[in-house]
Design a protein around this nucleic acid. Structure first.
Length: 488
RNA sequence: GGCGGCAUAGCCAAGCGGCUAAGGCGGAGGUCUGCAAAACCUCUAUUCCCCAGUUCGAAUCUGGGUGCCGCCUCCA
């Protein structure tokens, strides 16, 4: 199944038909993190989104190569390491490891390659040399700068005019630069900083060059998708284009530029420099990873996403319902293909619903990765299926439930990763607020109340329930007995 | 100052020229229940920030406003 895929290309500011460089193969490079602190939700969003992109493309029949870098040589890493009296590379190693672990917990599949700047100094130096030879860069006082003037297409990604940029520039004037907009490819070492030998003396790579050098190395001169946050469009990606195309002499460097919207907190961009961030680890203390994915995918990837507490709680109800139904389904029937279910006598109407779900899901995803619409298709299937779950289904209905289960597994669990079979609200979940003694006491009280109910002493039963409610304990009387849990 | 993006029901959120404006939350009514809760069913925008225009037809295109957000300095 290889549907026609359309995606919004930042370069052209239009939705375009997706045609990879080589049929059936997709090469993706996503800008990774500068590991000097814990990952926050603003990092989780692109990670989850591009994880879904990758899984969807694979489901659509493409072979996907996925590269994500670590910028492990950087001013902020050096500064942080100095504060802590640590080796910068060691600090970067530690935080890149914790980044990977956080993303693992979010169900993000590992990239095929995680190139690091520190391991590609030679490639970077070679590229800088090439740029100097081509007249696109110049050495100055131990540093090397890219000459923006030498690249006529500068500004095409961010739609900026060079003269306007100069007018609004807030960049400090670097004495070694010939022109305002020129940017560093190689920075001369300052005392006490990590440095590598180069033809221009000891130093380290500038910020933008690494992504060019490493993406070209692993994916070739014109790869398919380059992703990252909207805040990277300028100058980072603009500069990447200039360096790469000047170096290879080939355009386009990247066929499709995809940029995800930013995560906001209180309508302000979440970022480390503003200090208003929520780390992935903090979020995962309170929320299931599959729910975090759900919250991300509930928004279209290009829209801004507010990550506020109350909104999450209301979103969670929907997610819980989706998952409860999925879990009931998993308990009710073995997964089955549609054809298989048809042979087992499943009602045609339900099988159509299952197939329609799949079609809608793929159509939504093929339309610029519309994950919100894709999720809606799952809810629509649930509506068809739920009435059957209340009753004891006959064999045909059971087969249909199996088909529904299979499609949810494929789409909701496999591609989106928003469904889980983990227990969601096990009876007696203490939420970390209680110990064995409290649990036993509540069990005892509930037991006594059940005896009162059996004796039809409802006044007493209600009094117990009300009293427990005031203590933050919620009771549910079900056909199979009373269940209790702490109030959220 | 320049460049982008966004504005759709009480809230979140799809929709990108034409079937009844997805879906979720909430709300209302109902089934079930000793009563609740949970679950399930039904209903819940004659209308898409404002004003002009293009078109047989616009939430969707064009022009002009208004309001938010982002980028132009490190940032996913």
């Amino acid at each position: 199944m290889q549907p026609e895929i359309y995606l919004y290309n930042t370069l052209t500011r239009r939705k375009e038909r997706f045609e990879p460089r080589r049929p059936g193969e997709v090469s993706i490079y996503v800008c990774g993190v500068t590991p000097y602190d814990d990952a926050h939700i603003g990092h989780a969003r692109p990670a989850v989104f591009f994880d879904v992109v990758r899984k969807f493309l694979r489901a659509a029949g493409y072979r996907v190569t996925f590269v994500q870098n670590f910028t492990d040589v950087d001013d902020k890493i050096i500064a942080r390491a100095r504060e802590r009296g640590m080796d910068p590379l060691e600090l970067a190693r530690r935080y890149s490891q914790s980044y990977l672990e956080d993303m693992d917990r979010l169900g993000v599949e590992r990239a095929d390659i995680y190139p690091r700047v520190s391991e590609h100094i030679d490639d970077i130096i070679r590229m800088i040399q090439g740029l100097i030879e081509k007249g696109a860069a110049y050495a100055s006082e131990g540093s090397v700068f890219f000459s923006v003037e030498s690249f006529p297409g500068y500004g095409k990604l961010s739609n900026q005019r060079v003269d306007e940029l100069v007018a609004g520039a807030r960049v400090e004037v670097d004495p070694g630069k010939r022109a305002h907009l020129d940017f560093a490819l190689w920075k001369a070492a300052k005392p006490g900083e990590p440095a590598w030998d180069s033809p221009w003396g000891p130093g380290r790579p500038g910020w933008h060059i690494e992504c060019s050098a490493m993406s070209l190395k692993y994916l070739g001169n014109s790869f398919d998708i380059h992703g990252g946050g909207l805040d990277l469009v300028f100058p980072h990606h603009e500069n990447e284009i200039a360096q790469s195309e000047a170096y290879t002499g080939e355009a386009p460097f990247v066929r499709y530029w995809l940029h995800n919207g930013l995560v906001t907190l209180g309508d302000e961009k979440m970022s480390k420099s503003l200090g208003n961030f929520v780390t992935v680890q903090e979020v995962l203390k309170e929320h299931h990873p599959a729910f975090v994915r759900y919250a991300v995918l509930q928004h279209h990837y290009r829209s801004p996403m507010e990550f506020g507490g109350e909104q999450l709680e209301t979103m969670k109800r929907g997610w819980l319902r989706l998952n409860r139904t999925y879990q009931q389904l998993a308990g009710a029937a073995p997964a089955a293909g549609v054809d298989e279910a048809r042979k087992a006598g499943a009602p045609e109407e339900l099988l159509h619903a299952v197939q329609r779900t799949r079609e809608r899901f793929f159509a939504a995803m093929a339309d610029d990765f519309n994950t919100a619409a894709a999720l809606a298709s799952l809810f629509e299937l649930l509506r068809e299926v739920r009435p059957l779950l209340g009753q004891s289904p006959d064999d045909g209905a059971k087969a249909a439930l199996g088909a529904a289960r299979a499609v949810l597994e494929e789409l909701g669990a496999g591609i989106l990763g928003v469904l889980t079979l983990d227990p969601l609200d096990p009876a007696g979940d203490t939420g970390g607020r209680s110990d064995e003694l409290v649990r036993e006491l509540v069990n005892l009280i509930v037991e006594i109340r059940s005896e009162a109910r059996a004796a039809r002493d409802f006044a007493r039963a209600d009094r117990i329930r009300d009293a427990l409610q005031r203590l933050g304990i919620v009771l549910e009387d079900r056909p199979d007995g009373t269940r209790w849990s702490f109030k959220e």
